[in-house]
Computed example of a mutant assay.
Amino acid sequence: MQPMEGPESLVAPRHATWLELFFDLVFVASIGVISHGLSHSHDGHVSLKQLTDFVLQFFPIWWIWASHTLYLNRLDTYDRVQRILTLSVIFLLINLSAMFGGNVLVHTSEFILVYTAIRLLIAFMYFWSQFGGGHLQSYARQMCVATLLGALISCGALAFAGEHRVAVFYLGIVLEMALVAFVSRKIRLTRQDRKHLVERIGLMTMILLGESIISLVASLQDRAGETPNLIAMMFGFILIGAIWWIYYGSFYLLESAREIRRGITLLYTHLIFAMGLVMLANLIGLTMRDEIDSESFRMLTLFGLIFFYIGKQVSYFKAIPPHRINNVVFTLTCVSIGAFSTYLPNPTLALVGVTFAMLTYVFMHYTWTLPKDVSAYLEVSGKARRC
């Protein structure tokens, strides 16, 4: 006889809605526009400025996705008002994406105005949720205020110019993120909400991996009529497969991990994880097209691997204590092998080395980490399926 798991066991499983999936697709399309500047080199060189511009442009788009995801995770009723407001956010996000380019925040006011309009829509969604009843009315009211404050500060950047404009704009985002984390401190996700949040993050990652495949195919098309770099193509695909395996191999644990209480850590760390994933995807494309020098390869590899692993491992470090030592050791091993690989004679061989580093992590993780019993840190005792 199976033991009852409490009232939540009677609740139907909650999954991402079709509208959420649509939102994810638009978000990833926006990321594709942002990463365009990172996917092209100048005489084989990718500058630090290109990388910095990518990070700065990625941040506000990710925060739109993350804050909207957080709202739907806790207050979604899938009613007509929420659908209309979400579609309005999507429409503005599409327009925002069209404004990307070098120094976009320095030279345009439209970007800040459209971004502010999106924040105001999300604030209104929280305001509207106050009238829906339930125990989260106070939470909705506080989140509305936090979102408004962040929006007003970011919009206040219009009063400045140059670097000061950029600083004030991002100050609004960082302050809002801090306020959201503070307001959420008393929230405890139900099992269904946690599974929904993990699913949304996992789906977003899967779509980003799909973008990596699109980049791989596009790189082949760019060399139509030429002999393709078969080694880079093969190991580029193996690298993407290894990334999938590393990410999803133990992802099921997060759905039931007791320490994923509010989801803030899991959500926020995926900012740098997603940036690292996009960097590695562009690294593969540039190598396949023979458009990257060793110095640029080294920069993208180090930033990509460090961002990828930090973003992935923090949640596991917090939620699954028995995995901590192994995760740290394996991460350092993989990053070290990848770093040494960048000193091989050319980027193609270096890509082979980075792929070997990822495969090494997969082997060590499945051999020494996953066999450990972590059931004491999960809310369910049933066996979970591994990828």
Rank of each mutant, 00 (worst) to 15 (best):
residue 3 P to K: 06
residue 7 P to A: 08
residue 12 A to D: 14
residue 12 A to I: 12
residue 13 P to R: 01
residue 18 W to Y: 11
residue 21 L to D: 07
residue 22 F to T: 08
residue 22 F to S: 04
residue 27 F to A: 12
residue 30 S to H: 04
residue 40 H to M: 05
residue 43 D to Y: 07
residue 48 L to F: 11
residue 53 D to C: 05
residue 55 V to D: 00
residue 56 L to R: 02
residue 60 P to D: 03
residue 64 I to V: 08
residue 69 T to A: 05
residue 71 Y to C: 05
residue 71 Y to M: 13
residue 72 L to S: 07
residue 79 D to W: 04
residue 83 R to K: 13
residue 87 L to Y: 12
residue 91 F to T: 07
residue 95 N to G: 15
residue 100 F to G: 06
residue 104 V to K: 07
residue 106 V to K: 14
residue 107 H to K: 14
residue 107 H to F: 14
residue 112 I to Y: 05
residue 118 I to E: 00
residue 123 A to I: 06
residue 126 Y to F: 15
residue 127 F to P: 02
residue 131 F to D: 13
residue 132 G to D: 11
residue 135 H to W: 13
residue 138 S to Y: 10
residue 139 Y to P: 02
residue 142 Q to H: 13
residue 143 M to S: 10
residue 143 M to G: 06
residue 145 V to A: 13
residue 148 L to G: 15
residue 152 L to Y: 09
residue 153 I to V: 10
residue 155 C to H: 09
residue 162 G to F: 00
residue 163 E to Q: 10
residue 166 V to T: 12
residue 172 G to M: 02
residue 172 G to W: 12
residue 181 A to W: 10
residue 183 V to W: 02
residue 186 K to L: 07
residue 187 I to V: 15
residue 193 D to F: 08
residue 196 H to I: 00
residue 199 E to G: 03
residue 200 R to L: 09
residue 209 L to K: 03
residue 211 E to I: 07
residue 213 I to A: 05
residue 213 I to L: 10
residue 214 I to P: 03
residue 216 L to E: 06
residue 219 S to I: 00
residue 222 D to R: 05
residue 223 R to V: 04
residue 224 A to W: 03
residue 226 E to V: 08
residue 234 M to W: 07
residue 239 L to Y: 12
residue 246 I to E: 04
residue 251 F to H: 13
residue 254 L to Q: 05
residue 255 E to R: 03
residue 257 A to E: 00
residue 258 R to K: 15
residue 259 E to G: 02
residue 261 R to D: 09
residue 263 G to L: 01
residue 270 H to I: 02
residue 272 I to S: 02
residue 275 M to Q: 11
residue 278 V to L: 12
residue 282 N to K: 06
residue 282 N to H: 14
residue 283 L to D: 02
residue 283 L to K: 03
residue 288 M to K: 06
residue 299 M to N: 09
residue 301 T to H: 02
residue 301 T to N: 12
residue 302 L to E: 13
residue 302 L to G: 13
residue 302 L to I: 15
residue 306 I to N: 09
residue 316 Y to L: 03
residue 316 Y to T: 01
residue 328 V to F: 15
residue 329 V to T: 10
residue 329 V to Q: 11
residue 330 F to D: 11
residue 331 T to Y: 01
residue 336 S to I: 01
residue 336 S to N: 06
residue 346 N to S: 14
residue 349 L to F: 12
residue 351 L to Q: 03
residue 355 T to W: 10
residue 355 T to C: 12
residue 357 A to W: 14
residue 358 M to S: 15
residue 358 M to R: 14
residue 359 L to F: 04
residue 360 T to Y: 11
residue 363 F to I: 12
residue 365 H to E: 15
residue 369 T to E: 14
residue 373 D to Q: 01
residue 376 A to N: 07
residue 377 Y to N: 14
residue 386 R to M: 15
